[in-house]
Each structure stands twice: as structure tokens, then as C-alpha cells.
Design a protein around this nucleic acid. Structure first.
Lengths: 203, 203
DNA sequence: TATCAAGGCTACTGAGCATTAGCCTTCCAG
DNA sequence: CTGGAAGGCTAATGCTCAGTAGCCTTGATA
């Protein structure tokens, strides 16, 4: 887990203004999309003009990349934390899905942008983000495979089951609202149970 | 069902070139996104220059709107067809979900663009599309409510269950490939069964 | 054969955009 | 009190677009 510790502990420190800019950009990217968001708008959201952003940030593209990479780090971290030290494979899957869903409520903007704007990254950056996402997807699939191998899970297709679980999380990021009438815990626990029935977990 | 008949029978006839342009635009919108797609590219895809598009199409925005509206019509149609004449509520739900998922494989580009590019529609057009989508979502939710009322389904939250089912379809549109190793029927039937376990359908 | 519509094309318009240049103020360190 | 860095600003640069104007070819019709 030294990798995720690094991500947790050594996440680069941003100046307060830098943080504000990134937050504003995140909100705008989520709302209007990356291409449709102008540097003027991002600036306005933190009370400065567009060109002044460049005193804090190297480019709009880097802003997007940083947002996505940070989010992927957090996602890996919460997954690792959720399954660490848990032996039973069904428990591990349930906890992994709970962490997955909770991430998508707590960081819904990051998740939303991360899913929708990969296309807006240029080639090289996209490759990095896609690789990191695939590595996460493999973790979930490996859990299901393990349960199947142990005859604890029974699925028609491991791939299909893992897609389904991952997609449910992404869906949450699209519709969840903090002030909605579904509480975070309600969603998390319900989806955790969905996951187990979905893989046909015995007992 | 006269509404959906209208949609099926009276879908406006497009010239072959018009069709080709719409298809090309759909593919490009799905690949690069609406904002990132230029009229020059759409033109090139059908062998003409960007400005010549305007001999067939009134604007890029209208192209997007037409794609989305047509897709929503088809989705409503396949739903209506799937549940028509089926009495048992569990059967109706399963068939509705199967139709939902099949739509998202057969029309994955339309579904993909329809979900991701609503933001790119201007205010008025967006309102129309959103309304039509909500009406579809209500159909699914009503099915679940009906099963719950009849004590055939048992869910923690109707809303959550319907979100989950709808999101699974959207997920399919994101990863399904005709030449992938999961067949359309395999996905459709598996998700149909998912749906029933997910709503805790008895028998 | 003359006409005309359909459907191409190039050139142009007008707008918007990310980013850079270069200037000015503020404020802290020496 | 002075020098310089930090962080604003306006103006300008260079590019990319959607959409329009207006011209030309083709081919069917009358």
C-alpha cells in the first residue's frame, strides 16, 4: 500500500488560489463541459480575469489533467482502504462496491468530469488517465474472479458483472445530489447489497 | 400507442445525402464530442466541403437535435412494443429492461451522444429532449411501483432501483462493441435477470 | 435547345478562444 | 526606503469556427 500512501500523503500542496481555481474549473467543467468552458469564466469564478489565471496554472489542459489524476489517486486509495485486512471475498466485494459508490457521491463532480471528458485530454495525457482507470477496473474484476474461483459467486460473465458494478457507480455520479432525498448511506448500502445479489453470492 | 405509431410511421424521410450526413455527424459527435466536431470534418466524412453541408442541413445544432429526438422516439417505441399485451408485471419489467438494454446496444452511438451531449443543446432544445427523456424514465419507474404495490417486488427505494436499471443501459452504450466477445443477446438476457433480482422479484 | 433547380465550390465574415507580452501596483525582506 | 517578486491588469496575437455570399456545373424538363 505504499503507492496509495504516497498518493494520500504526498498529494502536491496547492496555494489557496490554486485550489480555488481548480475547484472553480471542476465545477464549470462538470456543468458546461471542458470545451465549452472558457478561461474567462474560470477566472470570473475566482474574481480575476482570464489571463491572470496563468500566474497560477500552466494551461487549461493541465487543469483538467490534474483534476483527473487526483481523482484517480483518491479512488485507488479508498478502494485499497476498503478491502485492506478483510478476508471473506464477499465482504471484500461488498466493501469495494460501497467504497466505489461512496466515492461517486463524495466526489461526484470529479467522477463526472473524469468519465465525460477523457476525450478532451490530448493523446499523451489521455493514455495516462486511461491506464490508471483500467488498473482500477481490473481490481474490481479480480475480486469477482476470485469469488467465482472459490465458488462463492455465480455469474454468467465476470466481465459483464464487473461492467455492471462499475457502471452503477458512474450512474450515481450523474444523478446524486447532496440535498436530494436519497442519503449517501442509503445509496451506498443498497448498492452494496445489489452487488452481492448481482454476482449470485451465496450466504 | 398512436403516439409511438406516429413516431414509427411518420419519421421524416431524409434524402440519401441527408442520411449520410446525419450518420457521419453521429459517428463524429460520439467520437470527439459535439463541440470538438467541425462542420469541415462532417463534410469530409461524406466527401464534400463544410459549407456545402448547408445545402442539406440548417445548422450543426439542428443536426444534434434531430439525432437526439429520433433516438428518443425509437426508445419510446421499443419500450411500448416490449410491454404491449404482457400482463405479468415481472414479465413486463424484464421485457422492458431487455428492450432498454437492446436499444443501448443497437443504437449505442445515438444513446451515447444523447446522454453526453445534452449540455450542447441550447436552452429550448434541451428542454424538449429532457422532457422526453423524463417521460421514458417515468415509464420504468411506474413499472417498479406497480410491482411493489402488488407485492411482487421488494425494494429499499423505487427511485434507486429505477436509477440503477436506467444507468445499466447507459453503461452498455459506453462499452458495447458489435465485435466484442459479449453478444447482444447474452447482455440483454443477463441484464433482464439482473433487473428481476435487483427488484427482489418473487418467483 | 433553353431554363432552372440542385448541389457543389471558394472566399469571406464575424466572432470567440487560449495564450503571451508587457505594464503596474502592492508588499515584504534587507 | 528600496528592490524585487507576486499577482493583478489590458492589449494584442494567432488561430479556429459556424455560417453566408455568390459563383459554377450538371442534368432533367419543357
Amino acid at each position: 500500500m505504499s503507492g496509495s500512501d504516497r498518493a494520500v500523503l504526498a498529494r502536491p500542496q496547492l496555494s489557496p488560489r490554486g485550489r480555488a481555481i481548480r475547484d472553480a474549473a471542476l465545477k464549470l467543467f462538470a456543468e458546461r463541459g471542458y470545451e465549452a468552458t472558457t478561461t474567462t469564466e474560470i477566472g470570473a469564478a475566482v474574481g480575476i480575469r482570464g489571463p491572470s489565471l496563468y500566474k497560477h496554472v500552466s494551461s487549461k489542459q493541465d487543469l483538467l489533467l490534474a483534476i483527473m489524476l487526483d481523482a484517480m489517486d483518491v479512488l485507488h486509495d479508498v478502494h485499497a482502504l476498503a478491502v485492506a485486512g478483510v478476508d471473506d471475498v464477499a465482504d471484500r466485494l461488498r466493501r469495494a462496491v460501497e467504497a466505489h459508490v461512496r466515492f461517486h457521491t463524495r466526489h461526484r463532480l470529479e467522477a463526472f468530469v473524469g468519465n465525460r471528458e477523457i476525450r478532451s485530454l490530448d493523446e499523451a495525457n489521455r493514455a495516462v488517465v486511461v491506464a490508471r482507470r483500467s488498473s482500477y477496473e481490473r481490481l474490481i474484476r479480480a475480486l469477482i474472479e476470485e469469488g467465482v474461483a472459490a465458488s462463492r459467486f455465480h455469474v454468467a460473465s465476470v466481465k459483464l458483472a464487473s461492467y455492471a458494478l462499475l457502471d452503477l457507480g458512474m450512474g450515481v455520479a450523474a444523478w446524486y445530489r447532496e440535498d436530494g432525498d436519497l442519503s449517501e448511506d442509503e445509496i451506498v448500502y443498497t448498492y452494496g447489497r445489489f452487488a452481492l445479489t448481482l454476482v449470485g453470492a451465496a450466504g
